[in-house]
Every structure is written in C-alpha cells, then in structure tokens.
Deep mutational scan, measured.
Amino acid sequence: MDVFMKGLSKAKEGVVAAAEKTKQGVAEAAGKTKEGVLYVGSKTKEGVVHGVATVAEKTKEQVTNVGGAVVTGVTAVAQKTVEGAGSIAAATGFVKKDQLGKNEEGAPQEGILEDMPVDPDNEAYEMPSEEGYQDYEPEA
C-alpha cells in the first residue's frame, strides 16, 4: 500500500510541476504579447503594419512553449490582441483601416495563427491545408 501511495504522490508532483510550467509559459506569452502591443503603439504610420505582424510573430513563438489545451486559448487571445492593436492603430490615425491585415508588401496577414497546427491532446499534428499553395516548377 505504501508503494501505491508513494507512486500516487510522485504522479501528483509531476502534474503540479507540469501545471506550473504551463502557467509560466502562458505568463511569458502574455508578456511578449504586451511587449508587441507597446511596440505597435510606438510606431509611426509606416511601421504600424509591420508592428502588428511582430506582435503576432512574438506571440506565436511563445505559444510553442505552452502545451496542451492552453495553446488553443493563448492563440485565440493573441489573435484578438493583434486585431485590437490594429483597431487602436486605425482609431489613433497611425494607419488607414484599409491597410490593416496586410503586410508591407500588401499581402493579407489573416491566418497567421489560424494555420498553425495545434492539437490540445498532444496526440497528432496535421499540416495546414494546401489550398493556398501553388506547385513550383523550376525553369529549365
């Protein structure tokens, strides 16, 4: 019985440690998101679009440190934060509304985080759909 109880105690310690790591990862992701939003706020009209992409990228980098179902929630929060940063930029006159959601080359930025393969159960990952990809044929 002692062996059984000791095993359960060790398992509990492992769960607590994993929860603490997840909590730490979420806190880091939130900190990076805040950094990115402050970065966007300090940019001029020309830099705002690039700044919004930076927020998304920093958040995406930190999301990889967070495991399990938390990833889905962090990704949703990050996307809403990026959308909010863009709205703030438009409201303050840093950028025109028609410039939001495009990178410096004018290509749409939507789907940055949505296409990231995420499995809350950590069982399997699927690649994003290939609808947006084109076949590449090298020139002879």
Rank of each mutant, 00 (worst) to 15 (best):
P138M: 06
E28M: 09
G14V: 13
A11Q: 00
G47L: 12
E35N: 11
E83P: 04
L38I: 03
V77T: 03
E110N: 10
T72S: 10
V82I: 08
K58C: 06
E83R: 07
E123T: 07
V37N: 00
V52W: 15
I88E: 02
E126C: 13
S87P: 10
P117H: 05
S42V: 09
V52E: 00
G106Q: 05
V71M: 14
A53P: 01
P108H: 08
M5R: 15
K12C: 11
G47A: 15
Q109Y: 08
A89D: 03
V63T: 02
T33N: 00
A140S: 13
S87T: 08
E57P: 02
V66P: 01
V40G: 01
K10T: 04
M5I: 00
L8C: 01
G41L: 01
K97I: 12
G14E: 09
G106N: 05
P138E: 04
A89R: 08
P138D: 07
A69P: 03
D121W: 05
F4Q: 00
V71W: 15
G67Q: 10
K102S: 01
Q79E: 05
G36I: 15
D2E: 01
A91V: 12
S87V: 13
P138L: 05
K23R: 08
S42M: 09
A90K: 05
K96D: 10
A107D: 15
K45C: 11
G51S: 03
L38Q: 06
G132K: 07
K12Y: 14
Y125S: 07
E46P: 02
E28Q: 09
M5Y: 01
A27S: 04
V77L: 14
T72Q: 10
G106K: 08
Q99H: 14
G93S: 07
V55R: 01
E126D: 10
D119Y: 03
K96Y: 15
S9W: 15
A140M: 07
K97A: 09
D115F: 12
T75M: 12
M5K: 10
Q24N: 07
E13M: 08
V66A: 08
L8K: 00
F94G: 03
T81I: 06
K12A: 08
L38V: 07
K23P: 00
M116H: 11
G31R: 12
N65P: 02
T75K: 09
G25C: 09
V77C: 13
K32Q: 03
A29N: 01
G106H: 06
G7P: 01
E123H: 09
V74A: 08
V26W: 15
Q62E: 04
N65T: 07
G73N: 13
K102L: 13
G68P: 06
K102Q: 02
A56H: 11
Q62V: 04
A29I: 13
K96Q: 08
G93D: 05
A91C: 06
E123Q: 10
G106M: 06
D119G: 10
E35V: 05
P120E: 08
G25T: 15
A90Y: 11
V49N: 03
L100K: 03
E139W: 10
A124I: 02
V40E: 00
S42N: 14
A69M: 04
G7F: 05
L100V: 10
V49F: 10
V118A: 09
L38W: 06
D121L: 08
E139N: 12
P108C: 11
V74I: 03
E13W: 04
A53H: 15
G7L: 14
V15K: 00
A17F: 10
E104C: 02
K45S: 06
V63S: 02
E20G: 01
V74T: 02
D98Q: 07
T44L: 10
P128L: 10
G47H: 14
A19S: 02
E28C: 06
K32G: 01
E61V: 06
G73S: 14
S42D: 04
D121G: 11
E130D: 12
V16L: 10
K23T: 03
T81E: 02
V95R: 09
T54N: 11
G67Y: 04
S42R: 12
D119V: 05
E28N: 02
E105F: 07
Q99I: 13
G73D: 02
T75L: 15
D121H: 10
G86K: 07
L113T: 10
V95A: 10
K102C: 06
L113R: 09
A90I: 05
A107F: 06
A91H: 09
G7C: 15
K34P: 00
T64Q: 09
E20A: 15
L113C: 03
P120F: 09
M116G: 03
E131G: 04
A19C: 04
N65F: 09
A27I: 14
G73M: 14
K34I: 10
P128Q: 06
K34R: 12
K32P: 01
G86V: 13
E130L: 07
V71Y: 15
G51T: 11
G106L: 05
V95M: 02
G67R: 13
T92A: 13
D135L: 09
